[in-house]
C-alpha cells in the first residue's frame, strides 16, 4: 500500500476554498523543494491575492505583495541573497495583467528565480472578475456577465508564447485535472527549482488551475472545464528549455 508522506515544509492546512488548485500547487512546490534538499534556504514571495494563502502554510521565510510586482520583489531578494532559493508564486492577474511589465523584465533580465503562475482564468480574491489575459471568450464572470466578448473585451492571450521569445531558461505549462497532469506539473516545477539550484536563468511554470467558487461549478466540473476548454486555448507542455532535456 502506498504511503503518502506530507512534506515537512507544510505546517498548516491551506486556507483556500474547497476544490481550489492553489493547495495542490503549494504541495507540489514543497515536495519539489524537499526532493532537491533545498528546504533550509528558501525565501518565498507571494502575491497578495489568493497566493497569499500559502504564507502561513509553508515553513519558509515569506514576503507578500505589492499586487502584480512579485517578480520584482523576488528580483530584489535574489540580488541581495543570490545563494538562497527564491521563488515567486502569483496568480494570472498579478503576473500577466497588472504586473505583466514586471514579469516581462524579470524574464528579460533572466533573473535566476523560479516563478509559478496560477492560471485560473479569473480574479479569485476580489470575487470573480474577468481576467484580461486568461478569461476565455464566452466565459461569464461578475464583470462580463453575458460572457466575454472579443469585440469589447479583447481576447485571452498565451503569455508563455511571448516569454519563450525572451530567451529565458525554462517556460512550461502544466494542469491539475488528473494525476498524470499533476505529475507532469510537478516535474516542471521541480525543473524550475533545479535550474535555480544550478545557477541557471529565469524559470516560469504556469499551472491551469480551477476556481470552482468563482466559476460557480462543482470541483469535478471545474476540472472538466479545464480539460475541455481552457487547455485548448492554453496548451500544456514545455515552451522553452534552454538547458536541453526537451
Amino acid at each position: 500500500m502506498p504511503v503518502y508522506k506530507t512534506p515537512k515544509s507544510i505546517i498548516a492546512p491551506s486556507g483556500c476554498c474547497g476544490g481550489c488548485g492553489h493547495g495542490i500547487i503549494q504541495r507540489l512546490i514543497a515536495e519539489s523543494i524537499e526532493e532537491l534538499g533545498l528546504q533550509d534556504q528558501v525565501i518565498a514571495c507571494v502575491d497578495i491575492a489568493c497566493s497569499e494563502w500559502s504564507l502561513d502554510c509553508l515553513d519558509y521565510d515569506h514576503i507578500a505583495g505589492p499586487h502584480g510586482r512579485i517578480a520584482s520583489v523576488a528580483t530584489g531578494i535574489k540580488k541581495v541573497r543570490p545563494d538562497k532559493t527564491v521563488y515567486a508564486l502569483a496568480g494570472d492577474g498579478s503576473s500577466y495583467v497588472i504586473g505583466w511589465t514586471e514579469t516581462t523584465y524579470a524574464a528579460v533580465r533572466d533573473i535566476p528565480i523560479t516563478m509559478i503562475v496560477v492560471n485560473n482564468g479569473i480574479f479569485g480574491m476580489t470575487g470573480g472578475q474577468m481576467n484580461l489575459a486568461t478569461t476565455l471568450i464566452g466565459d461569464k464572470t461578475v464583470s462580463s456577465k453575458a460572457g466575454r466578448r472579443r469585440e469589447t473585451m479583447g481576447h485571452p492571450v498565451d503569455m508563455l508564447q511571448a516569454i519563450r521569445t525572451f530567451d529565458v531558461e525554462f517556460a512550461a505549462r502544466g494542469a491539475l485535472y488528473d494525476t498524470k497532469h499533476i505529475d507532469e506539473t510537478k516535474r516542471f516545477i521541480k525543473k524550475g527549482f533545479e535550474n535555480q539550484r544550478d545557477n541557471k536563468g529565469f524559470s516560469i511554470i504556469e499551472v491551469l488551475s480551477p476556481c470552482p467558487t468563482n466559476w460557480k461549478l462543482d470541483p469535478v466540473d471545474a476540472m472538466e472545464k479545464i480539460k475541455n476548454e481552457n487547455e485548448k486555448v492554453f496548451p500544456v507542455g514545455v515552451y522553452t528549455d534552454r538547458g536541453g532535456n526537451k
Binding site: I63, R69, I70, S72, V73, T75, G76, I77, V80, E102
Partner: peptide, 13 residues
Amino acid sequence: IASMSMLFGASAA
C-alpha cells in the same frame, strides 16, 4: 513601481 518593488524585496532581505 518595479524599481520600488525590487527595493522592497532587497530591503526585506
